[in-house]
Amino acid sequence: MDKSMYAIEVEKLTKIYGKGETAVTAIADATFQVKPGELVAILGPSGSGKTTLLTAIGLINEPTHGKVVIDGAVVADEGWTPGFDLKRMRREKLGFIFQAHNLIPFLSAIENVMVALEINHLSRSEAKSRAVELLTSLNLAHRLNNFPSALSGGEAQRVAIARALANKPKVILADEPTAALDTENGKNVMALLKKLAVENHSAILVVTHDHRMVEGFDRIFQVSDGRITGES
């Protein structure tokens, strides 16, 4: 497969916090690729560097060394690519799912999805119909006008997934998406992500410490002490 066919390409990605004697290497020489439609987990204990890896791929945390390519665009090569519009890239190509759903508390379920679309310059009516479509597909049609405080944990996480999918991203990055859910809801969310990866042809990279949640993933990278120690 041609390299440009990968949704995510990471090559010798290294992130070092601090300088000199106090320098801490959070992730070192991470190299992997994720194809569109592939569901990949990064599994590791707390402090192993998996979130650092996710934030570097999510264009939040500048890598110290190495290269990051998203949907064929070199976003980082020994630091951010000069002049590259990271915000636009995040808006158009990336979708984020968080540990604690991170829905905006003062927006209803439909508005939480619409905000991501309107930020990406969709008209109000287009944003509304797309949000309804997404939430309906995630069995939330009856919850469109509910605020996050009125949703269950599973429902809130599904709204967050709808928001992540809103702009049809090439890459979805999920940071411990099941951490705030019970086992059943957690498994449901993971199953949903797997379904979406196939349906939307998006690369989904899930960071988790819970090995019970990664059943059925296409690939699993084990991370320990800042290094990818294995792939299964």
Binding site: M89, E92, F96, V115
Partner: peptide, 16 residues
């Protein structure tokens, strides 16, 4: 703060 961080993360412009 969390709302603002989330908005920034999903690519919101500063003017929003």
């Amino acid at each position: 703060i969390k709302v603002i961080a989330t908005l920034k993360l999903i690519g919101s412009q500063n003017r929003v």
